[in-house]
């Protein structure tokens, strides 16, 4: 059964390429609280600090907080990209991640080639990849542009292709960053429907966003991150307060 359990999870980014000692001293002295020297006397930024939570099947969790609070880092950690320096993490279920739309996109290759490449990234077989290609081609509505190098796409077209590829998954655990909010209005209507289906289909959703409207509409639980810590965690209404009356 899909679930996420984190016990004391911490992530630290070492700042290796900072150069001069004096710079290091200055940074540490002017002490943003998250920078410190670790045992090996390197400067590290604590991106996530001692996170404890568990997310069970059926929960739709919004990660909220300021820029740099650690939302995307947490998503990447859940996706298995960063290994925690402390703590224990377990994510059960097939993970689908929609963290960066441009990840793995080859700008010099055509749209169609990129779809094939995406299939390979996901370790798909011939048949699965074929299905992916058909589905993405249909949904993206790029038509003849599929045979044009992505470099020549407008930004809207690139988003459409990325979105179509990223959403052609059936994950049990869906990790999503808010980038998908870009795109023209016409496409967004179509996109929302598809996202809605994806979210419905997933057992667990973790979504990093600034849009409180989205949080209220899609999520059942909100976790507020600040400086790498969870400062509030609970049902959406409790964390955000009652919905403001329009007007």
């Amino acid at each position: 059964m899909a679930h996420i359990i984190a016990r004391g999870v911490s992530i630290e980014f070492p700042l290796y390429h900072m150069g001069a000692r004096s710079l290091k001293k200055r940074l540490l002295a002017s002490s943003p609280l998250r920078m410190r020297s670790d045992d090996a006397n390197r400067v590290v930024v604590s991106a996530l600090r001692d996170l404890n939570f568990s997310i069970t099947r059926g929960e739709r969790v919004a990660l909220i907080g300021h820029n740099g609070a650690g939302k995307t880092t947490l998503l990447r950690t859940l996706a298995g990209i960063y290994e925690p320096v402390a703590g224990e993490l377990e994510v059960a279920g097939i993970i689908g991640q929609m963290i960066d739309p441009g990840a793995g996109l080859d700008m010099d290759a055509t749209g169609r080639e990129n779809i094939v490449l995406r299939g390979l990234y996901r370790g798909m077989g011939e048949r699965e990849a074929q299905l992916l290609a058909e589905e993405v081609a249909e949904f993206s509505g790029l038509g003849e542009f599929l045979d044009v190098p992505v470099r020549n796409y407008s930004s809207g077209m690139t988003v459409r292709l990325s979105f179509a590829m990223a959403t052609a998954i059936k994950p049990q655990v869906l990790l999503m960053d808010e980038w998908f909010l870009a795109g023209d209005a016409d496409f967004m209507a179509k996109a929302e429907q598809r996202l809605g289906r994806l979210v419905e289909g997933a057992d667990v959703l973790v979504l990093a966003t600034h849009e409180m409207g989205i949080v209220r509409r899609w999520c059942t639980r909100a976790m507020r991150l600040d400086a790498g810590r969870v400062v509030a965690d609970g049902p959406v209404e409790q964390i955000l307060g009652p919905e403001p009356v329009a007007g």
Binding site: L78, A79, G80, V85, L89, E90, I94, I95
Partner: peptide, 11 residues
């Protein structure tokens, strides 16, 4: 045919 999940214990 699937599951990628994460299990990691820093200890």
């Amino acid at each position: 045919g699937t599951p990628v999940s994460v299990r990691f214990n820093a200890a």
